[in-house]
Nucleic acid binder design. Structure first.
Lengths: 342, 342
DNA sequence: TTGAAAGCGCTAACAC
DNA sequence: GTGTTAGCGCTTTCAA
């Protein structure tokens, strides 16, 4: 005696019985295979409804087709996990991914790859068929993970262009455009002595923001704006600002490559007795939390992270269904958020 | 002809062949069933090593045992997703979960439940066997989700005590203790007129922080500290502070129920020309990003979120392996992080 | 204690 | 176009 048969969740078999067809036909309908008689298809769809049938992912996976899930891999240098997760950037990207994927009825599996061996395992995880593909979010641009996925021939899409060129799809921001937005705004408000606090030179995004800023300033007839480097932390921004102030005392505008450094700049400026934006205008990048909690609140360049994340998911899904397509990259435009600092 | 047989990932069958035993025996060894001859067990383990065998989750799941994965469900009111994910709180909890689970070789699946129907689907997801249990992180305390899991008899553990009492395990912070830490600090620095900015009364954590603060102040002989309410946003903190200042002009210390409201208080205080901490000392709660980016930097009460998240995962895993155990709750102690505001 | 064998729910040849 | 059938890798009675 099989107990509680009626409490079982309905299977393909059940639907087939109700519709009066074979399992195969139901499978075809459920998977949208074209070669099915219209009348039968309707009957099957009705049966699916009445039974409340939902495909069993494990069975699908085992039968050798799709896993019905994708991996969201967070990669980074050893032990950088704490830092990654504490950054709202990660949360916003994750949110965008989850939200988009949910409309397709799929839930991402979170895989942490914060060591070389963990990266290998992440690839294995997907290779084993636990996921149909991977969304890769790296903290460091020179990450080895994208390469591993490319080599394994597994569907994968990156958030942000990899430092090492690889044939892989990615979404990214038009960083130069964002930097130009900032430069233009500074010049438009009448700043004549503009400097910038750049991020680490080995981070592509930081490079792009710097070069975008320089080019924009050159267009405004100021090709030699002062530059100080930071590492994206508040403290480094504070130091860089102090440095800039020492080198260019008459400076009246600053563009920082991220909000945290801009917040640090605000601190240094206050300590130096300069009013913001009256004496010095400041613009940040990212529109992250510090931008709205700092005093004054930061004018900043915002990234459509959620949209980018959704697009990243879309690209991956496409790549999974249409195997063997060429890598694609989608670049998004940032916009300026005007607040009180510039 | 079966192609590329050698590139297949090893199965139980392969291990069995190498070890010279049956699949059943290998299965027993792999699953730690006691009734296996010691010698055979060793042989099997060796075979597992040489073949590099790893169990296939889909097959396990299909065969009716464990899914080998757990769901991390983010619940909240309709459309609150954006907000949730942008908050580093979520990221830190997620990080703690992922990090702990990884040591057990399992990866959480992220499930968003930001509507009543989505909550139903989240329960279904687990009921269908896609996950062995769920970790529930709610934005609102009166969430229906915990109840749904309890009713379905599915293993689940909550982050934070639910407003509606339910027989379910959870981890939480000793909020009263944290509030007392703040009160004590304020009194110890010599504040004589202390007020508090409380959070929404329907949030258990906010209630606890308020009552903990009041009790501590009562112990110091000040049972009637002024209270203003906010909703955890910076703006609400600013408003509440202005209100407090109007009602209690000679106030010299403030405890805000979270850092964002404390940052707002800082703003109001600056506008009112009060120096912090010289005129008015301020203490926040959470040790979140604004605490270290504000000026002055906030002295605040810190929660060991990652530890709490790890413990939450541990409780769930326990509950999964030892079915039918009583709900457990683990309360963690906060600590004071001294910075510049008090 | 160990092995043989029956599925778990589904997909994909292959035959009709 | 549709049905039949052979697995996918694993767990788990049931015998031995």
């Amino acid at each position: 005696m099989r107990p509680r048969k009626q409490h079982r969740t309905p299977t393909l078999e059940d639907v087939a019985r109700v519709a009066g067809v074979s399992r195969a036909t139901v499978s075809r309908v459920v998977n949208g295979v074209a070669t099915v008689d219209a009348a039968l298809r309707l009957k099957v769809m009705a049966a699916v409804d009445t039974t409340g049938y939902r495909p069993n992912n494990a069975a699908r996976q085992l039968a050798g087709r799709k896993a019905g899930s994708i991996a969201l891999v967070i990669s980074g240098s050893d032990g950088s996990a704490e830092q990654v997760f504490g950054d709202p950037f990660f949360g916003r990207v994750t949110g965008g991914v989850v939200k988009h994927l949910r409309t397709k009825g799929i839930h991402p599996t979170l895989v942490l790859a914060d060591s070389e061996s963990a990266r290998g395992e992440a690839v294995d995880y997907v290779r084993r068929g636990n996921a149909d593909g991977a969304l890769l979010v790296s903290t460091h641009a020179d990450d080895t993970l994208p390469g591993l996925f490319v080599d394994a021939g597994l569907p994968a899409v990156l958030f942000a262009r990899p430092a090492l060129h690889a044939p892989i799809s990615y979404v990214d921001l038009a960083h130069e455009v964002g930097a130009a937005l900032a430069a233009d705004r500074l010049v438009a408000r009448g700043c004549r002595r503009v400097a910038t606090i750049a991020g680490p030179i080995d981070v592509p995004a930081a490079q792009d923001r710097l070069s975008g800023f320089r080019q924009a300033m050159a267009r405004h007839g100021e090709p030699y704006a002062a530059v100080a480097y930071g590492n994206f932390t508040l403290e480094s921004g504070e130091l860089a600002m102090a440095d800039l102030l020492a080198r260019t005392p008459d400076l009246d505008g600053v563009f920082a490559a991220n909000d945290l450094m801009a917040a640090g700049a605000l601190r240094a400026l206050r300590d130096a007795g300069r009013a913001v934006p009256a004496d010095v205008a400041v613009i940040g990048f990212d529109d992250s939390a510090p931008a709205s909690t700092s005093t004054p609140r930061l004018t900043t360049v915002a990234q459509p992270l959620e949209e980018m994340a959704a697009e990243m998911s879309r690209l991956l899904l496409d790549q999974i269904t249409h195997a063997g397509t060429e890598p694609v990259c989608k670049i998004f435009d940032p916009h300026l958020v005007l607040r009180d600092s510039a």
